[in-house]
Design a protein around this nucleic acid. Sequence first.
DNA 1: TTGTATGCGTTATCAT
DNA 2: ATGATAACGCATACAA
Lengths: 321, 321
Amino acid sequence: MVSIKDIARHAGVSISTVSYALNGNPKVTEETRKKILDVAKQLNYVPNAAARTLKKRETKIIGAFLTTLEGAFYGELLQGMKEELNKREYDLVICSGTRSHRMLSEGMLDGAIILDRLFSDEVLLQHAERGHKLVVLDRELSHRNVVQVLLDNKAGATFAIEYLIRQGHRKLYAVTGPGGSFDSEQRLAAVRQAVDRAGEIQYAEIPGNFDKASGAAAAQIIINEYDGPAAAFCFNDEMAIGMYQALRETSYAIGEHLHVVGFDHIEIADYVQPRLATVHYSEKRWGALAAEQLIKLIANEGAEHERIYVSLVEGDSVGQI
Amino acid sequence: MVSIKDIARHAGVSISTVSYALNGNPKVTEETRKKILDVAKQLNYVPNAAARTLKKRETKIIGAFLTTLEGAFYGELLQGMKEELNKREYDLVICSGTRSHRMLSEGMLDGAIILDRLFSDEVLLQHAERGHKLVVLDRELSHRNVVQVLLDNKAGATFAIEYLIRQGHRKLYAVTGPGGSFDSEQRLAAVRQAVDRAGEIQYAEIPGNFDKASGAAAAQIIINEYDGPAAAFCFNDEMAIGMYQALRETSYAIGEHLHVVGFDHIEIADYVQPRLATVHYSEKRWGALAAEQLIKLIANEGAEHERIYVSLVEGDSVGQI
DNA sequence: TTGTATGCGTTATCAT
DNA sequence: ATGATAACGCATACAA
């Protein structure tokens, strides 16, 4: 490995001069700078990140923590983060799994964006307390080193329920996400409010898990007690797709017997037959905003909590009654 | 920040004893080790990655480099890598974009898995020459520090063409990937061979780009010169899906006028109507194998080039003639 | 068994 | 304008 020491030797200057030259410090003559850069190039010099980090206590790298790498959901979100971060001279790396948490605590990251409910509030607060800067996308967390950038779940869930009611549905199911999920709980609260407000609604809740299997299971339950058109608001599109799968084997049809609204507007939603009605938001914007706030937090520029707005996408998975 | 120096002071021992204790060196008494661990916990000690890396010249982190985070985000592939790496005490991070290349050269990674044709052969070889360990999934590259884990493109493309011919098709199109793509070129070579072998085939090539838009454009071209049932082998599923979209607006139907085979077996392939015939392989296995070979390469345990086998998934996007 | 001392590659302070 | 030197936190060869 070639270090600034080697450059110094070859260029006949001291290491501090090399460091200055390499970092564009104006104290150094144009002439010596040129010479040093030449030698550096010639020796194939590459700076050592570990040494720089040890000294400067920053890496210019941000981590995005996800529960899993699988599933087609996060592509645009991450792209949004990456583009925003790159603009500000930061790099983004995607991490997943408990093992990777060490990257945050051991100082390999200047900050993190969290979308991983397996990352507990408690642990997150510990990191924040140690001075790490965090943006959370999946919970409310109050700390000077944490900012929230959250979906407007309340609006989304309300849109969904009101849409079903507007289409004439009076028998409603809510298929929820897993217990710990902040998004799921917010959506559930909004659903209950909307249902209460509507009055005269037959309403039930089915616990789900955000995966296809639980959507299929929910569909099964609904079919078993079928006694006329029913409508389900699945708290994400994955589960809604699971319903499509479950009904394939039966004589019931989506949009005719079982009416479905999802949440997230994932790509498949536009391809299934009939097209899935769902709640849409811009993943890219979400990611970009999260990145922006994180950089502000790191730079002490007054980062603030943000909310991502959502809209309803109608579809033939919901028929009129 | 609390360092081993602080621990040493609080525990009344020297920093080397602390280091030994923390690293489980048997030289240190059970008693002192216990005391030291207690103090460490009490002080909320977290090791500093930069310092450790600077000293040991390894990070226990592997990077996976992708062209983009968007689209079919290679979820299972990455998950396969991650699981395999975690088993061996390594972490995985996902990187994308030229900016992130520095992580490799600056020594923040012990090795890298490359699936990014924007990463040039030349640059890759430079990294390898500097001692970095690489696994390439998207090209052939010969170097002692590089191993290849490649799809069996030849088999896949041959399966696809032979399937079309078996179904009675005699007018064939190949919709290729972008110019630089290794996979695309391999598939193209195999297609030409299979077509030659079959004889009496009307055959043409349409340059594509691996994205939906180029698939749609290809469909447009085929329709414009339509004079009877035509079959297209799209070199990936994305483009095949693009064909579905393009035909929606027309009176032509997939599986009836235009017959289509894709490559990759992405999730949507099972959901479109009619279901897309495609070439399947296990992404997870691909990732796991790549990770395994990389670890072997790093440990000097004789890593070898590997090939990922593929199979044909038939579908109603190809009708009989 | 424990302590002392050195160096990893950088940055940055202070002299010169 | 340039150089000498001291950290940064850790691992480790060598001393005791």
